[in-house]
Each structure stands twice: as C-alpha cells, then as structure tokens.
Design a protein around this nucleic acid. Structure first.
Lengths: 251, 251
DNA sequence: TAGTGGTCTAGACCACACG
DNA sequence: GTGTGGTCTAGACCACTAT
C-alpha cells in the first residue's frame, strides 16, 4: 500500500489514502475508521507513522478521535444561517435582538450571560472608536448559549461618555437592546461588519467547546452615528456552526 | 520547567509556555524560536515530545517551520479588506469587476485565468439555482492572482440556457463582467452572500500556497433576477489575507 | 561542514470506554 | 478485561539551508 520509492513520505501516503476514502464516501460521516493498530497492519508502517497521518487529518478537520472509543469521520453539525441584515431598524423596532430572533426560527432555546466592565481604550478597538488611548470604555462581555451550549462570544465596546447614567451600564438593556437605547438617545445608527476567520485561541477553544481543526468566524461590527463610531462589537463563533447571510444588493 | 505531577501532558506544558511567550511578545512575530534540540535541553523532555508541542502550535497558526532554517513566530501578512457592497449597480456601471477595483486601491497587479466548462447541475449548486438535477450548467472556473500569487479561487455557475450564444461562454465577458451582461439582457439582479470558513482541502492548500493552520473564508454569492436565481459563485480565499466588509445598515 | 527540521522505528506504559 | 487512543522515550538517518 505504501510506495517507498515515490519520495512521498509514508505518513502522507497514509493520510492521502484515508482522505480519499472520506472524500469518495467509502468512509461516510460518522463512520469509524480502523484502529491505529489495524492501520499499522494494513499499511505496514509503525504506529507513530500512522498517528502522524491521523494527526494531519485531525488538524484538517477530517477526522475526530475519541479516547477509548476510536477514530471517526467528522460529522458536521447542521449550520445555523444568520441573516445579518436583521440589524436593520425595522427588525429592532420589533423589540428583539438578532440572537433571540434567530433562536425561535431555529427552534432552540437561547440564553445569554453578560459581564460589564470599564477599561481604558486600547489597540484595534480604540482605533475603530477613534478614541484617544486611555479614554474610558464600557465593555459588555457576553457568552451566548443555544440549549445551554456556548455558541458565540461577543464583546461590545462603547465610549463611557455615552453610557454613563444609562441602562447601557446595566446587565439588562431592555427591549431591542443597546441599539434601541442609542437610537432613543437621538443617534441614527449605521452598521458595518468586518468578517474574517482564524484558528481559535486555546481559551476560545475551551469556551466554545471546539474540536481540533475547527476555525472560528470573527465579526467586527462598527455602529456609527452621523459618521462617528459609537459602538464596536467583536464576535467569535464556531465556523462549523455558523454561516453568515448578507444582502449585498446595493441600490 | 515541566511539572510531572500536574497531570498536564509534557508536550502541552511546552506548547503553553511557548504560546505564552508569543502572546506576551517575548517572541515577537518573525522571531526565531530556539531549535528543537535546544528546547529538548531547556525542558528536559525528548525530541518527539518537543516536536509534538510544535506541531500543535503550527496547526494553530502560531508558529511556522522552515526546513533547514528554523522555527519562527508566524508573521501575519497585512490583510486586504474587501468591500463587498461594491457589487452594487453603481459600481458595476463604472465598468469594472470588484477584484480589479480592489487591485488599484491596494496597489497590486491583478491577473485572472479563466476556464470554462459545461456540466450537469449537481449538489448544493443545483439546489441554490433551483435546477432539476441533470440540467446543463455553464461553469466559469477562475484563479485570481495578485502580483502573480494566487489569492482567490472562484467558480461561477449559470444555467446554460441563459448563456447559450452569448459572451458568457467566452473567456472575456467584457467591461463590467458577467453581471453587466446579465443586466443588459434585461435582468435586474439582487445579490446575497453566504459567508463561512473551514480548513482548506489539500488541493486548495496547494493552489493558494497556504501554510498549516490557515483556514479559508468561503463566500457563496447568489444572484437572483425577480426571485429567480440566475448565478451562483463559490469563492475561496485565504483567511490570512482577507477580511470582508459589509454594509449592513438596512433602513 | 555544521546545524536545522523531517521522517521513521520498536517498544513501553497510561487513561478511557464498554461489555 | 480487552481494545481503544494518548503520552513518552532513545536513537537513527534523511533533506534542506547556510557558511
């Protein structure tokens, strides 16, 4: 099974063969791959070499290993499609945040924990908010859960000056959330979102319960009021669970 | 340096220590990490254990190894910010595709290779185009390059019925591209984009020249004309290189 | 030529899942 | 208990980069 003359490393040949079996459906999603010791026999290489091949496929998100049980072809959960244009004023006036609206549509039970803190502005957020470094910022740190499982992290930043003495420094900001309160205060909000992806930090991996080989989607949302940025939210979610839908029609 | 009693595997302790040195800036981007043999001495574990730690950090995109040279803290290239709302009719009328517009703005030289083929509709694309399986589809397969480097893959699908006898079956579709031609044919286009991320396939990794630990952003764009989908484009790009900017203001 | 990462082996023992 | 993946070792040799 392994061609020693080809110049292709043995572990790569093993990985490619297994990858192929997954791609062609010979090993369908959820299927248990032969054990490492069986693969040793099949390919005629040592166990570390087999493990190296499997490591590769795990970090590529093709296989998952379960200690004591076996190695399985990764099963993708069904994605939640998030319609980002729900941020529009019309939807907000209906009195609910985007996360809650998605929840009934998807048929899951949402819950959110919030922590509030105040810090001097720094780094990218200070830049996006166009604040002098050191200006105080109100930070709303949230973990969103679907049926109890953490699925999304979100950290919002507002200039403290805008939140002082308002419910924006409380845990519960009321119907329609932060944006509804800002509009009541006379702001006409516009939104931009900056979407990227990367591998999670080890902290994010723990918080979101991610397996090896799963990247995260990052969304940075900037709310501006007559050209002045008033809020920046940084969101992190499993790329396995989410797809973001944008209406891009223009005019 | 390694706590054998803690229950945390040695390779994890090594990885965490190195990760920390990167996070705190002790090892800044581009910095050469001590060689594997030096780390063996520093941590008092075997080389395979050191390698296991480094593997982990490579698949997380923290370190990159260069054969014969050393191991380095990954240096992120500057991201190209793509303003997706450039698809709007106004921009298209100016006579250029989004990729070319981004090019001058970013100061790089764009080039595109196109391959055209015809196939029966299948899978997700057939679904998005609402075509009966087997209906013929025109496929425009593109590789976009910036200064010669492949940076983006894009595959467009149109029902063959719409392209027969038009320039949409030619390599060059003229000023404004496919969308301009469709509008000239009487379609009023609306666009939606579905954004996700995942680890690349091994083919994509080769084509885009991606290093370990770099996910790809995927964008599926659906163009509809009075509710009927007329074109689906699937784009794949390095998440290291791109950030997508959406205006989400609604009204 | 010296130093680096890349590949591979043969074996040992541990930790977990399941019948 | 048996079988699974997880951790770790000591060493060998190869392939690449730089001097």
């Amino acid at each position: 099974m392994i061609d020693k003359e080809s110049g292709v490393p043995a572990y790569r040949q093993v990985a490619d063969t297994l990858r192929d079996r997954v791609a062609t459906g010979q090993y369908p999603p959820g299927h248990q791959v032969p054990s490492e010791r069986d693969l040793v026999d099949e390919f005629g290489v040592s166990r570390p070499t087999i493990r190296q091949a499997i490591e590769l496929l795990r970090s590529d998100g093709v296989l998952v290993a379960e200690h004591g049980r076996g190695i399985f072809v990764r099963q993708r959960p069904t994605v939640r499609r998030l319609a980002r244009n729900r941020l529009s004023r019309a939807a907000r006036d209906a009195g609910r945040g985007a996360f809650l609206a998605d929840a009934d549509e998807g048929g899951w039970t949402p819950s959110v924990s919030v922590r509030i803190r105040f810090e001097p502005a720094a780094g990218r957020v200070a830049e996006l908010l166009q604040l002098a470094p050191g200006a105080e910022v109100t930070i709303r740190d949230r973990i969103m859960r679907a049926d109890g499982e953490p699925v999304q992290l979100a950290v919002s930043h507002l200039p403290r000056e805008l939140t002082q003495g308002t419910v924006l420094e409380d845990v519960d900001t009321g119907d329609g959330g932060t944006y509804a309160r800002l509009e009541e205060a006379g702001h006409r909000l516009r939104f931009e979102e900056l979407v990227g992806a990367r591998m999670p930090t080890s902290e994010e991996r723990t918080q979101l319960g991610l397996t090896r080989g799963t990247p995260v989607l990052t969304v940075t949302r900037v709310a501006t009021s007559s050209g002045r940025p008033v809020e920046v939210t940084e969101m992190v979610m499993s790329a396995d669970l989410y797809e973001l839908l944008y209406d891009v029609s223009g005019d």
